[in-house]
Nucleic acid binder design. Structure first.
Length: 447
RNA sequence: GGCGCGGUAGCCAAGUGGUAAGGCCGAGGUCUGCAAAACCUCUAUCGUGAGUUCGAUUCUCACCCGCGCCUCCA
């Protein structure tokens, strides 16, 4: 979704990007009670972790809205539904949406409920609902659990109501695009549509964007299988945030991505290749002038990337376009066909690509440091891989110090004192610095 | 059982009615004091069977395998 957002913005749209945070539900209430903290304290911790992981992945921050900050509007919304006869109150003070009043129910998930008998599988009596499919808008308070006092009574919101209320508050009764995971299509989004459209009489979201779930090592991700990882888990294992981001974005959103550790390594190499290319462009010593073939390559690539993303956000093809450019341009650099004036166009094409994919500029170091710091404060430092600690700790060398070392190394190489130069190279390597000797001279980068 | 998605080289993964992008890994080569980077070459009868078609990986049907949803878990 971050890519979609970035792509819309790059295409010239003024995007208002809102993300709902569910900070109250049965599970949260239960767990908060278990931990002896308030709902707010409990959710704040997870929201913080979520935002940190998002930041590590270079995900741009949307406008965040929280369910608990919109309780009065929810009550108002439910009140209106009741007035219109679209919802009803049960004896215990809960409110339910009357699905029978929304004939189009099931249109998003393409489910046909016409032939389904109430009570066939679900116990209708359990919650005094009129129909088994009616869903909760508002739940009556239970002793000792968090609840809010509102005009429709005391209680707490059901799951679906928050999304309708918040999106309408921020975006109006009809908005352009609603995104989410494929698992939310039914019932969550279906219910959002039902309660929203039956109230306003207007379309809720014009388009829906559902991303498929990923597989981890070919299996469904789950805690019980032991293949459930957070971003910080992966980083602690030694994977760069950019590798994770690359892997996640390398498969178009409609397809099921198989997230594997081999894949992460592969992604790291891919990113590295593009970073090397960018580095080479910025440091190459070139002859003045321009080569129309190269200029055309840059233009073609920009067009291909745009075309791929416009085609249902085909990220795989956009990436292929950039690799094609890198390969051709690298070959041209090898054969001295690139001129000085060609470089800006090539860099601009890369830049445009990276505005969407967001993996090239950052060297991951600051993000890794943040996570290592976090691990230190939470006692998880021992989980960190040695390479990681090295990266996190490798900032002691300043650019000047590095340049001095390299100058020394070059002097040693000139006098063919290879033992000395190798020692210096090893020293820099262990500090996370890679030194390359090219025909254009020496250059270095942080690994 | 119902609805939906997918099975493409060692791995990941696009795509098209006219014999298949890209990446990773591997092998060989060029360059190089070493290393790194880069480039070149090599590796796929597109799950199985049948049908439609001049021609199918691409359309249809059947089958096998994997995945998701069908539950007040968000």
């Amino acid at each position: 979704m971050d890519l979609l957002y970035r792509f819309f913005r790059q295409s010239g749209y003024d995007v208002r990007y809102v993300m709902n945070i569910t900070d109250v539900d049965d599970k949260i209430i239960r767990n908060a009670a278990r931990d002896g903290v308030s709902v707010q304290q409990y959710t704040a911790k997870y929201e913080q972790a979520f935002l940190e992981d998002s930041a590590a992945l270079n995900i741009e921050r949307p406008l965040l809205v929280r369910a608990t900050e919109h309780i009065p509007e929810m009550a108002e919304f439910i009140g209106k539904l009741v007035e219109k006869g679209l919802a009803y109150r049960t004896e215990d003070g809960s409110y339910y949406f009357r699905i029978a009043k929304f004939p189009q129910y099931g249109k998003l998930s393409k489910k046909d409920f016409a032939g389904m008998e109430d009570g066939a599988r679900v116990d209708v009596d359990e919650y005094e609902k009129d129909s088994a499919r009616d869903f909760a808008l508002w739940k009556a308070p239970k002793p000792g659990e968090a609840s809010w006092e509102t005009p429709i009574g005391r209680g707490r919101p059901g799951w679906h109501i928050e999304c309708s209320v918040m999106s309408m508050a921020e975006l109006g009764p009809t908005f352009d695009l609603h995104a989410g995971g494929e698992d939310l299509i039914f019932p969550h989004h279906e219910n959002e549509i039902a309660q929203s459209e039956s109230l306003t009489g207007q379309p809720f979201a014009r388009f829906w964007f559902h991303a498929r779930f990923l597989l981890v090592e070919g299996e469904k991700m789950s805690k019980s299988l032991g293949n459930f990882f957070t971003i910080r888990d992966l980083v602690l294992k030694g994977h760069k945030p950019s590798s994770i981001r690359w892997l996640l974005t390398s498969v178009p959103y409609r397809n099921q991505l198989n997230f594997t550790f081999d894949g992460l390594k592969s992604a790291a190499s891919s990113v590295e290749k593009l970073r090397n290319f960018r580095f080479r462009l910025t440091s190459a010593q070139l002859i003045d002038g321009a080569n129309p073939t190269i200029a055309q390559l840059a233009t073609e690539t920009v067009d291909r990337i745009k075309g791929a993303l416009e085609d249902d956000l085909n990220t795989a093809q956009a990436q292929a376009a950039v690799f094609d450019m890198a390969r051709k341009a690298n070959a041209a650099l090898d054969s001295n066909e690139v001129r000085k004036d060609d470089v800006p166009a090539l860099l601009a094409a890369l830049e445009k690509f990276d505005e969407i994919f967001g993996v090239l500029k950052d060297d991951d170091q600051s993000k890794i440091k943040t996570i290592v710091e976090w691990a230190r404060t939470t006692g998880r430092e021992k989980e960190a891989s040695p390479e990681l600690l090295e990266i996190a700790g490798s900032v002691q060398l300043s650019d000047n110090q590095i340049n001095e070392k390299i100058a020394e190394m070059e002097a040693a190489r000139k006098s063919r004192n290879f033992k000395a130069s190798d020692a210096l190279r090893a020293e820099l390597t262990s500090a996370g610095i890679v030194v390359e000797n090219t025909k254009d001279g020496v250059r270095w980068k942080r690994k």
